[in-house]
Nucleic acid binder design. Structure first.
Lengths: 335, 335
DNA sequence: CTTGACGATGTAATCGTTTGCAAGGAGACT
DNA sequence: AGTCTCCTTGCAAACGATTACATCGTCAAG
């Protein structure tokens, strides 16, 4: 029977009012008289009317969605953050668009593209390696960073990464380790650098030796952790404990050394960072620094909503507490 | 200097042509004369004009995005599929909206909502537990299912789950196992049921005993796998091998029994399903059935694009091959 | 020279809402 | 009774693009 989908005109006709009244009934019910309101709502029910968000967005000069721009969509680390964001955005009537900076050629260009495209009322940026210049587009929507951050005053939601790293080192030191190594993320990454500096600060704090051969380059991936594990085994003088800059690398590292017969934590202690879901089920369960991902998502979304609401390009940042999660992958040094 | 963002009108004025010509230059360049085309493109560059997709979408009666509707956004299983979808949708000029069926009250209602909302030109549905009735909305966009599926002719992209399960059992049988258990997903779920039936078929094929106490209820999560592991340990007569309906449960199961001192694969062999990233780095690395997630994402997106293009609510389905991945979690039965 | 076809461009309606402005009506107050 | 407020509602102009249709040359064929 319904050839076309009902428009606000149809509702107006059925209810015997103007489209303006229908629109007001739906957006600001308080301003219309009770009786008309009722008539309109009946007409809405009768026609099965659903508001056309595209038209609404055009008129209101907004887009109705927020973009989450991550370095790599395939990275499962972000899924829980997305869930947190969605939990905030959905009730606010905003959709969640996802995109990554790896697709296409130039990541900066991709960010600029989304900012000019008008496809989003706000953007949550998870990639701190982009340039500030990419943000310099006329009439851009508000942007907030999450997890990573950049110099330049963009608001952000993150944890105190250096502190987390320091906590990891302190725990290892407290267990008696004097030779503590580190597996880094990709050089230049802000998480890599702050966790590295936290690690170094931890060493200094406990008067421990810093040896460059005990610092292994990684890229946050499991494979890079496994590669670091192999390099660790090739060392003549090995650290007895390792702080890995991500759980993924810790998993890879631990897998690689275990496959070679090394026992964790008897022969080697390992601490990770992030507390991704799987690490509690490993053997041994991994001691790590928890980063509350859901909270990061919800807070980033909330702060962004505030900025959108007041139409401001700046806003407050937030630092969320990390939490030390002791499990079974740390023991006293061997011998 | 730029107070407002440039519109097509501004470009038309600068280029000295009508808006129609500007529009045509941008969408169907072949129909405009070379000289005008050039003038228009210059004007575009000069004004910094970006097409307003909301206006364009309104006029063209489309939305410019596709929704991925998953049971739970926090589930990292989907991230790689999303990446596959995004890789196809982005070049096609479509955005990827994500949402889950858990938020809010009624999952069916949520699906209907998105279908009527006009927010998407198409929808990829990952939740097979919804009712067909929820799809019965006037003028709905095309829908394709991925991973899961439902009776009722909705096109889908999936793997042969029963076959995968059967491969797992066959491999265990070939290693000499006669007592093979199973950890299921949530009852009623189509993946649960087909993998279960594949498991049973595998048992029958090799003349193996089927014992109800060897079938453990799970829900695909790691915790449920761990719980199943505990129940396995409490058994007096234990199966010597387990096929878990998901890698996550296999991880949980293996962790639980290992923490209790059981050795894998010496005391117990385990096979999972999915081949999630982490399982190759476990100790022992997990033998599993691979489900090509990126391919599932790209194919689902491609088939959906086809449906959108021709405006059809139906289309072909596709079954993607599973792959057996032998690793180290399977050995001969003990004794 | 006339006619027809074709290629390139402009005119203007249209997509479905929202909202500033104005107007009508009902009380309230003087 | 007159005037001043509110409270409701309608009118009509946006929002910024796309596209059916009309128009205007130009050129080739008859």
């Amino acid at each position: 029977m319904d050839k076309r989908v009902a428009t606000i005109q149809d509702v107006a006709r059925v209810a015997g009012v103007s489209t303006a009244t229908v629109s007001r009934t739906l957006s600001k019910p308080s301003v219309v008289a009770e009786s008309t309101r009722e008539a309109v709502l009946n007409a809405v029910a009768e026609t099965g009317y659903r508001i056309n968000s595209t038209a609404s967005n055009l008129r209101r000069q907004r887009s109705g969605s927020v973009i989450a721009l991550v370095p790599n969509l395939a990275n499962p680390f972000f899924s829980q953050i997305m869930a947190g964001m969605s939990a905030v955005l959905t009730p606010a009537g905003l959709g969640l668009l996802v995109a990554d900076t790896q697709t296409g050629t130039d990541p900066d260009e991709r960010l600029s593209h989304f900012l000019r495209s008008g496809q989003a009322d706000g953007l949550v940026l998870f990639d701190g390696s982009l340039s500030l210049a990419a943000l310099d587009v006329p009439r851009r929507p508000p942007v907030i960073m999450a997890c990573e951050w950049m110099a330049g005053g963009l608001p952000s939601v993150r944890v105190d990464n250096a502190l987390g790293a320091q906590m990891a080192v302190s725990h290892l030191a407290a267990k008696g380790h004097r030779a503590i190594g580190h597996v880094t993320g990709p050089r230049g990454n802000v998480l890599t650098e702050t966790r590295l500096s936290g690690y170094l600060r931890g060493l200094a704090e406990h008067g421990l030796e810093r040896r460059d051969s005990w610092i292994f380059d990684g890229d946050f991936s499991m494979d890079s952790g496994a590669a670091a594990g192999k390099r660790w085994m090739a060392l003549e003088s090995r650290p007895t404990a390792l702080f890995c800059s991500s759980d993924e690398m810790a998993v890879g590292f631990m897998g690689a050394v275990q496959h070679a017969g090394i026992r964790v934590p008897e022969d080697l202690s390992i601490v990770g960072f992030d507390n991704i879901d799987v690490v509690g089920h490993l053997t041994p369960a991994l001691t790590t620094i928890r980063q509350p991902r859901t909270t990061i998502g919800t807070r980033a979304a909330e702060l962004l909503l505030d900025m959108i609401e007041v139409g401001s390009l700046t806003g407050p940042s937030e630092v969320i507490d990390v939490e030390f999660i002791p499990r079974k992958s740390v023991g006293p040094p061997p011998g």
